[in-house]
Design a binder for these strands. Structure first.
Lengths: 216, 216
DNA sequence: GGATGTGAATCCGTTCACAGCT
DNA sequence: AGCTGTGAACGGATTCACATCC
């Protein structure tokens, strides 16, 4: 049943479903079930059915889900039935890796412009893309109506650059800088900070184990 | 009050608190409050107090929290009062960026070994670290008793490599491969997939806005 | 006065379990 | 028989609001 306001956490799982479904299609699998999908993802089948039920009735009782149909539906829901242009800010190691990462293009995103403030880097090419000077951000993003930016810059510049890209019309930011950003309500932010992931995992790594497993 | 089993979601917020507190210390700030911290992070003050209360009473009524003291406490809780060695598997763009990323060393993690299966890359140096052949994974990780691995490899190899590092004694995995991994119960996994972040943000980017903001 | 720590209340998300369809 | 879709039950997390202490 199509609901009014869908929980953020549900939305965040849809791309994960999509990822798994894509793998199935690539393997030639045509049909799946909430059970199978759940097992592959470590999620309960009830949750998957409930999540999908927010948007419609995509399955057939007794049968399951047509993989391709479900992919189409999820893609539409997530506005992925188009290509999104993305700007990368920062051409250091991370910006470099992002710009060359094939995974974006494969899944609906095109890095179409990259900026840096270092004159040494401006004018160089990454993945066939010329690095532009940061002073051009507002002009270029507005011209091309780019709404997504990825920040691959040090924490100390992150808020200022955020303000700039927001001013340029960006409405979604994926930041690799390890700092919480302030943005207006109409802008979404996601963070990628590998260290926070590691730091929460070490909570569960009791030091004792260290002593047990000796070098052989 | 120190509780028995602390919710995962609480643990996952502690590194974020730590990040913010570190910035405060760097700015010379000695004292903060749940209010201030919450505002900086976009979290309610009650939540911060409740989270911390799982582990002890770290604040002073009427005053707030000593920043440095709180950092010390959180670091201990998360087992960060030591250095953790990390193995990177895969020396492509992502592995390269990870290995050179200063943020790990600054926050308690040392990338101390890197592997690749491509003979072309084995023997080359990244950040002063020689790339070793993947066939050495089990031997080296066991010898050095390394318990954390970061996977920077294509999805199709991810499960096999996961099995290998688990066999080698790894108990925490941070994977950059866009696929859900199967691991035994005693192993923790976190995922970094920028595309899933982008894909959930585009849900909120209605296409209409496109038409409004014309190129000028 | 001001900020913590915490039971109580509320809100939200997950799981249960089953009716209903194929 | 098998699997979906879903109200109901459950469990957990967040917020409230206040007693408590500096």
């Amino acid at each position: 049943m199509s609901d009014n306001s869908i929980p953020k956490i549900v939305i965040s799982r849809l791309p994960v479903y999509l990822r798994a479904l894509s793998r199935m299609i690539n393997k030639g699998q045509l049909v799946t079930s909430s059970h199978e999908l759940g097992k592959a993802l470590g999620i309960s089948s009830a949750q998957i059915r409930k999540d999908l039920s927010h948007f419609g009735e995509f399955g057939k009782q007794g049968t399951g889900y047509q993989v391709e149909f479900l992919i189409t539906q999820l893609s539409q829901i997530l506005n992925l039935d188009r290509e999104w242009e993305v700007a990368v800010i920062g051409s250091g190691d991370i910006g470099h890796a992002i710009t060359r990462y094939q995974g974006f293009a494969d899944r609906g995103f095109r890095v179409s412009v990259i900026f840096d403030s270092d004159p040494q880097k401006v004018g160089s090419y990454i993945n066939g893309l010329e690095v532009m000077h940061a002073s051009q951000i507002v002009k270029v993003l507005r011209e091309r109506n780019i709404q997504i930016a990825m920040l691959a810059i040090p924490a100390e510049y992150a808020q200022k650059v955020t303000d700039t890209v927001v001013d340029a019309g960006v409405r979604a930011i994926l930041s690799y800088a390890p700092i919480s950003l302030n943005v207006p309500d109409h802008v979404r932010v996601s963070y990628i900070d590998p260290v926070t992931h590691l730091q929460s995992m070490t909570y569960y790594l009791s030091t004792e184990q260290d002593l047990m497993s000796q070098p052989l």
